Simulated scan of single mutants.
Amino acid sequence: MSDLRYTKAPGLSTRPVEAAGSLMVFTPAKPKVHWPNLAGWYLFELSDGSGEEHIAAEYAEAVAGQIPRDEALLQARSCLADLARRGILVTTEA
């Protein structure tokens, strides 16, 4: 079980692009425009300082019936780590 907590990186510029089912995110610390998919957008919104397991469980509940729970949890953890690598989310230890 992870002790990581996820929050949105400071200074981001975001704009929802609902027609594309995506969120446009500009990261000023690493100047780049990112286009997280719908899952990434949802996980971004859930990242309010909550722990990885809590966020992953919320995601799994949201996609219940579409993919198996274990797969959803793995997908959420992987996506959270990717968003952090890209500078969209920051992590802290609980």
Rank of each mutant, 00 (worst) to 15 (best):
V33D: 08
W35G: 07
L4S: 08
A62I: 05
L83A: 05
F26Y: 14
M24E: 15
A9Y: 07
A76H: 00
T7P: 05
F44K: 06
P68V: 13
G65T: 09
E52L: 09
S78I: 14
L23V: 08
K8A: 11
H34V: 04
T27C: 11
I67N: 02
W35V: 05
G49A: 09
E53Q: 14
L4H: 08
T91A: 03
A19S: 15
A57F: 02
A84W: 02
A56E: 01
I67L: 11
R86T: 09
A62M: 09
L38H: 13
P36H: 03
K30I: 11
A57C: 04
L23M: 14
L73G: 02
A72E: 04
G51F: 00
Q75N: 09
E71Y: 06
E93L: 14
L74H: 10
E93M: 13
L38V: 13
D82H: 12
L80A: 10
E61N: 08
A57Y: 02
D82P: 06
P68W: 07
A62K: 14
S2G: 12
A57S: 13
P10Q: 00
G49V: 02
I55N: 01
P31V: 02
V17L: 07
R77I: 10
R69D: 07
P31F: 03
A76K: 02
F44C: 12
E45Y: 07
K8E: 04
P31C: 03
W41K: 07
A39W: 00
P68C: 04
H34R: 11
E58F: 01
Q66Y: 10
E71D: 11
T14F: 00
G51A: 07
L80I: 05
I67T: 09
A29I: 12
S78Y: 12
E61K: 10
E45D: 14
V17R: 08
S50V: 00
R5W: 01
E53C: 04
E45P: 03
V25C: 07
W41H: 11
S2V: 12
S13Y: 08
R69E: 13
P10I: 00
A72K: 03
G51P: 01
P68I: 15
S13N: 10
